[in-house]
Design a protein around this nucleic acid. Structure first.
Lengths: 221, 221
DNA sequence: GTCTATAGGCTGATAGAC
DNA sequence: GTCTATCAGCCTATAGAC
């Protein structure tokens, strides 16, 4: 709940990074409560007392990891904030960014999804808000597109939720799907990240394209 | 991991049901490892030893609850299996079923989402497969629609994943969103279940409608 | 900075009275 | 069937040597 005191002095980054790298997949796969510090230390190849030394405890390690995750997300999404290109192009860019992010850090969507599901209960104040802010970019883009007529008059929030939902679900359940394909049907065509990204891009293009009779006058829901 | 022995004899349903009803929201909000048997018993107003008596342990209680959840899902989805109506109509029906299910049991999508994320690691063999089977209905419907030309030639699996993903994400993050609106912006228009369901129905209609030049000859991706 | 050893708390499960 | 009392194990965190 509250943070233990931070006992660090000058931090040799080596084991610190090793602990974070080892803990990420464990937290993603089993959640915070389901992961023991002993498992983390074992995976990192160091002593579990070092978790306390470097992060002030298990919660501190988790917070540090999620902070990194969020920073990475913010960096990746930053280019989208600039409204210099058409909304449909920016939205497709958003989809591609997610595919690249999941390729670079597959645990990323899982961690986000877990925190969204838990409602940020066990988290530092502000983390939950940061997650929401990251996704809020999409809502802005959609609202822009509706405003300038590139999209039909959809509700930006609902559209935003359905788009982000598709992406989050797909990437967060990727490990499970992978496991399923390995065990059950190795022959079937697997939905790769790239194929899914293109599929969503196409769905956006078709689903948000304005029809002939879309005028900014009538309120359509 | 393995199941404790089942010590039940003839089961008075009263406390058994009370335990299951009390445990559901706790498991949904905090996950299996994050929920203590003491919290469950406290919420149910009974002694924690009864969890062992009636379910053989915490894992047994969890399994029983998820079994009920899955049975309810299978019952609700059963009408969709019959291919007696057009695919687009069945797909809209699927969306409505989810909205009704979430209204009846909001913890439902959260539990499913947690299990999908965890890949069914801690579960009885077969539960994970049942979850997949439930959603598999949608893929069949989409494949039907593509086959008879009511939908444009989309990939059934990718389309299925994007549709189910939107729904699962929306309903699984409902508690978090509710909390967010309460704390931050009570004035804004909340995305209700009904509005979201209609939004998705519309998105399907527009996004899957065949265009003039969709012929069953060319392979479209 | 990193380790060993251990403290201290909580948790799930059981024994046994009623 | 339900309760009280309790145990044994695990798990996080700390103390202190190196």
């Amino acid at each position: 709940m509250t943070q233990p005191r931070p006992p660090r002095r000058h931090d040799t980054p080596a084991t610190r990074a090793a602990l974070m790298r080892a803990a990420l997949p464990l937290f993603a796969a089993r959640g915070f409560a389901g992961t023991t510090v002993e498992a983390i230390a074992g995976a990192a190849g160091v002593n579990k007392a070092l978790i306390n030394y470097h992060f002030g405890g298990k919660q501190g390690l988790f917070t540090a990891i999620l902070g990194d995750i969020l920073s990475e997300a913010e960096t990746r999404m930053a280019p989208l904030a600039a409204a210099d290109r058409p909304a449909d192009e920016r939205l497709r860019h958003f989809v591609r960014i997610w595919a690249e992010t999941a390729a670079a850090t597959p645990e990323f969507p899982v961690m986000m999804m877990r925190e969204l599901i838990s409602g940020g209960q066990h988290l530092e104040a502000g983390f939950f808000a940061r997650i929401v802010a990251i996704f809020g970019t999409v809502r802005e883009i959609i609202a822009d597109g509706v405003r300038d007529g590139r999209f039909r008059p959809v509700d930006p929030l609902l559209t935003h939720l359905s788009l982000v939902g598709s992406l989050m679900f797909f990437f967060a359940t990727e490990p499970a799907r992978e496991r399923l394909f390995e065990l059950g049907r190795p022959e079937a065509a697997r939905p790769t990240r790239e194929r899914f990204a293109r599929h969503i891009e196409e769905l956006i293009t078709v689903g948000l394209a304005p029809s002939a009779d879309d005028r900014p006058s009538g309120a359509a829901v």
